[in-house]
């Protein structure tokens, strides 16, 4: 049975014209072993938040979405160029005379990042369901009558995780990262949610896209 997320797709008004898709094929295992040694720390410790434009570009590229699909509040107001510009570290030069970015994340930044990442992941999932042949994330996953993953620890689920890491972070996941996201699938299944499989796909995508590694550089 296909993932029952047709309603989700309907929410994504763009389903009718899916964008072209870049395929990442996991030829090898695609999973790196855990690194158990001590990690040498960065002496500089200098990180910068990506800000509204880069985040939008990054999420769009990672999920093969047109930039305008990534996040729109109430389905129509762009998150990263209109509604949430300042919390994401942007500027408002022409309106408020805010010519330079604050330079630090603010109290509301994490929530806004969550919204943008969730929105992008939901959009991707909707497109994949509409056009499974060209799916970016949803490949080979089998769902039961209760909309749960039949094999939440199987190779298809692992491939989704590997694909997510390669797309969003340009690296293979480590075994603990794969284990954690597979455990997430099991836990969501166990909750008995009505759209458990869909929830997991979107949640796994959300975990990776909104990770600190994804939003700082």
């Amino acid at each position: 049975m296909r993932l029952d997320l047709i309603g989700l797709c309907a929410a994504v008004t763009l389903c009718a014209c899916p964008p072209s898709v870049t395929t990442i094929t996991v030829m090898d295992g695609g999973i790196d072993p855990a690194f158990d040694g001590g990690v040498a720390k960065s002496a500089r410790g200098v990180l910068r938040f990506k800000g509204p434009e880069r985040l939008n570009n990054e999420f769009a590229q990672a999920l093969d979405l047109p930039a305008s699909y990534v996040c729109n509040e109430l389905g129509q107001y762009p998150c990263t160029s209109l509604v949430h510009v300042l919390p994401l570290g942007g500027v408002d030069p022409y309106g408020s005379g805010l010519y330079e970015a604050a330079g630090a994340t603010s109290v509301t930044t994490p929530m806004v990042v969550d919204r943008v990442a969730l929105s992008a992941c939901t959009a991707r999932a909707g497109l994949d369901l509409t056009d499974p042949a060209n799916a970016v994330l949803l490949k080979g996953l089998v769902v039961d009558a209760q909309s749960k993953l039949v094999d939440p620890q199987g190779p298809a689920a692992k491939q989704v995780i590997v694909s997510l890491y390669r797309r969003a972070l340009q690296r293979n996941p480590t075994q603990p990262e794969v284990d954690a996201l597979l455990k997430l699938a099991v836990d969501i299944n166990a909750k008995g949610e009505p759209r458990a499989a869909g929830d997991w796909i979107i949640s796994a995508c959300f975990v990776v896209l909104s990770s600190a590694e994804s939003v700082f550089y």
Partner: peptide
């Protein structure tokens, strides 16, 4: 004073 940290790092050359 940016001094090189001890240990290895599989993802970054911090030195």
């Amino acid at each position: 004073t940016s001094t090189c940290a001890a240990g290895t790092n599989p993802q970054y050359d911090v030195c």
